[in-house]
Design a protein around this nucleic acid. Sequence first.
DNA 1: ATGAAAGCGCTAACAG
DNA 2: CTGTTAGCGCTTTCAT
Lengths: 350, 350
Amino acid sequence: MGARLQDVATAAGVSVRTVSNVVNDFPHVAAGTRARVQATIDELGYRPNLAARTLRRSRTGLVSLVVPELDSPYFAELAARIVAGAHSYGWTVLIDQTRGDEEHERRLIHGVRNQLVDGLIFSPWSVPPAELLARTDDIALVLLGEHGLEDPLDAGRFSRVVIDNVAAAQEATAHLLAGGARRIAAVGLQPHLHNCTAHLRVRGYRAALSAAGIAPDPALEVPVRALHRADGAQAFGTLLDRLAARGEQLDGAFFFTDELALGGVRAAVERGLHVPTDLTVAGFDDIVDGRFSVPTLTTIAPDKQGIADAALRSLADQLAGSGAGVAVPARHRLVVRESSTRRQADSVGR
Amino acid sequence: MGARLQDVATAAGVSVRTVSNVVNDFPHVAAGTRARVQATIDELGYRPNLAARTLRRSRTGLVSLVVPELDSPYFAELAARIVAGAHSYGWTVLIDQTRGDEEHERRLIHGVRNQLVDGLIFSPWSVPPAELLARTDDIALVLLGEHGLEDPLDAGRFSRVVIDNVAAAQEATAHLLAGGARRIAAVGLQPHLHNCTAHLRVRGYRAALSAAGIAPDPALEVPVRALHRADGAQAFGTLLDRLAARGEQLDGAFFFTDELALGGVRAAVERGLHVPTDLTVAGFDDIVDGRFSVPTLTTIAPDKQGIADAALRSLADQLAGSGAGVAVPARHRLVVRESSTRRQADSVGR
DNA sequence: ATGAAAGCGCTAACAG
DNA sequence: CTGTTAGCGCTTTCAT
């Protein structure tokens, strides 16, 4: 095959130790030696043998990212940032898509790949928290999201990066209230899932209403099958029709994802409603599409870069033997755009 | 970490050689010894160290499957079969999705992962054949599809598994003709792509028409952006509208993929046309959806299992040092279902 | 700042 | 049929 460390050493007239130092960017190498060795490396096209390195270091340099789906803009963006960030740790990222399949998730949690990867960044969907607790595998794991682990009993058991879904949902709802909305729907409940993100967002939504002296109306809390545009359009359309049949109406809607919101806006438009004139809308995720949609979409923007960085750092900490079981909070902020701004023309997607 | 081969050997009172033989299923091991060693392995929870094995064998046991997209039923099914089949070669499959992105494809062809995988099963999309020819990487490669390599100049340069797109398209079209159709559209041209599958299918379509004494009408050959339902619905709907405006009509349509066909049928239905009464339809790929759609879909069924098997075998041959540059033909067959059968009730999706 | 050398866990050639 | 043993290519301790 290709050149070995030894070959480079011989060709450059130094020992393998020195070549290794150069390859691994060790500080104490004379500049001249380094240059000469590097030249030889380039000339010979030397590439370190990953297997030998792994055997020696007992680290593969691979980490696995497990997400429900990659074709959703949110996860695609998050994955892209994680892949990019992993580079600076010298890691290669293997991506797995579970499609929310419980069996698939379970298999990955219990480490089919444990020999292959040093760590796992996992965004669970269907697998209940109890499963996670029962994990016997000793591979480093970082969880993305809340996932029912806010229970004090479980706290400290897993490393995870979390955003404050309750507070975020409350902010979004409060923003719609501040704009004058009084009857605000919440779209995106997923009662059948153990995934508790939706539960937390409902809680924030209700809290905001209560704080404004409005009693939450269960009829305005609508469940969805999945979190995509079609689900939002379908669920919200049905709600609008049902309300219309009773002569009622809405003046605001908080969707649990931007995709749902985009679908919901579409459903509203098809029924002759204008956003934001007839009702104001807020989403969650800050996906790119919402910056260019008509109207542009008000949303909660989780700090995706922060989430990616925190997940990688947390993984690195665990691999270094420290910092297991830490929950790192990630920031979010409300981004106000046209969909929640009555005077439509003054706000433009950034 | 875990137990090593040596540990097992000591515990079982045999040499590492024997344990290795058991682990690797070598034939010449006494049944009693084998059982005893196996018991010890289970007891100690021994798992071979992949890095050490790789270092020794200079094989990682990983192969990479590169497809344009996994959420298309065709590729999802093919991938599933390849993953399943790889198991019997002792391989683990890493899946990459290119989304048809040229840069992404290029990176993978030139082997970012060359250290990581023993071979590559590649289904190109955007990358022109010239790129492939210029490949310097020496990793084993099997191409899926035609991809302009039918040029005799290039033949023998790459291992690939191909189906006869021209013949298949001709069969499908001939079948529609045999059913009485005379004005048959072809939906799915992709003039902007180097990917030449579409070119070949057009060729087969035209050949069938000519053979029936019908002059191909360019107005009936419609291009699409991508190969999904939405593209089929959009493209075919537009065609139907354009024809209707001129008082013309169609009595058949050959779609280059089942997904396009499903979208096309939808577009026809929305315009008050009935399939197969008003026009007969055939697709390509034999995706599961077409077996349960209304009407069920006549299609060309590529032998996906055969393609998967051939690709894996070809890879294995290359890794064994033989059989590079062989083009393995895969079979296909016409599956007649309701969409092309005038008396609708007598054919049921199998 | 650099060299010498041990050994990571496994496979397979060589012996018996 | 089974035991002994030499490396695969690399990192890293110890020495200089």
